[in-house]
Amino acid sequence: MTYRVRIENADGEVVTIEISADELREKGLTLEELLPPNARIVEVEEVEP
């Protein structure tokens, strides 16, 4: 499974990243732990691999 994640950074700019569930598991991280300081998740969407 892959996630498309929209993130708002500290400057108010919204960027989109895609990350797979396998990648998260391998790194032992959650989506929140990948965020840079002062950023927030705006939207998470599951996409087909």
Rank of each mutant, 00 (worst) to 15 (best):
M1A: 06
M1C: 11
M1W: 13
T2R: 15
T2K: 14
T2D: 04
T2F: 15
Y3H: 02
Y3S: 00
R4Y: 07
R4Q: 03
R4A: 02
R4P: 00
V5W: 02
V5R: 00
R6D: 02
I7V: 09
E8W: 13
E8C: 12
E8P: 01
N9R: 14
N9H: 13
N9W: 14
D11G: 08
D11L: 10
D11K: 10
D11S: 10
G12R: 03
E13I: 13
E13T: 15
E13W: 09
V14W: 07
V14I: 14
V15N: 06
V15K: 07
V15G: 04
V15T: 11
T16H: 05
T16N: 04
T16M: 10
I17Y: 12
I17V: 09
E18F: 15
E18Y: 15
E18R: 06
E18D: 08
E18I: 15
I19L: 04
I19A: 01
D22K: 13
E23Q: 07
E23V: 10
R25D: 06
E26F: 13
E26Y: 11
E26P: 02
E26T: 12
E26D: 11
K27L: 10
G28K: 08
G28N: 10
G28E: 04
L29V: 11
L29E: 02
T30K: 10
L31N: 00
L31V: 05
L31T: 00
E32D: 08
E32G: 07
E32M: 12
E33H: 07
E33L: 06
E33M: 13
L34T: 04
L34I: 11
L35A: 04
L35I: 13
L35H: 01
L35Q: 01
P36A: 05
P36K: 03
P37V: 07
P37I: 08
P37Y: 09
P37R: 08
P37Q: 08
P37W: 07
A39F: 15
A39P: 02
A39S: 14
R40V: 11
R40F: 11
R40Y: 09
V42M: 10
V42D: 02
E43H: 14
E43S: 15
E43A: 13
E43K: 10
E43Y: 14
V44T: 03
V44Y: 06
E45R: 08
E46C: 12
V47K: 04
V47D: 03
V47I: 14
V47C: 07
E48L: 15
E48A: 14
E48H: 15
E48N: 14
P49H: 13
P49C: 12
P49R: 12
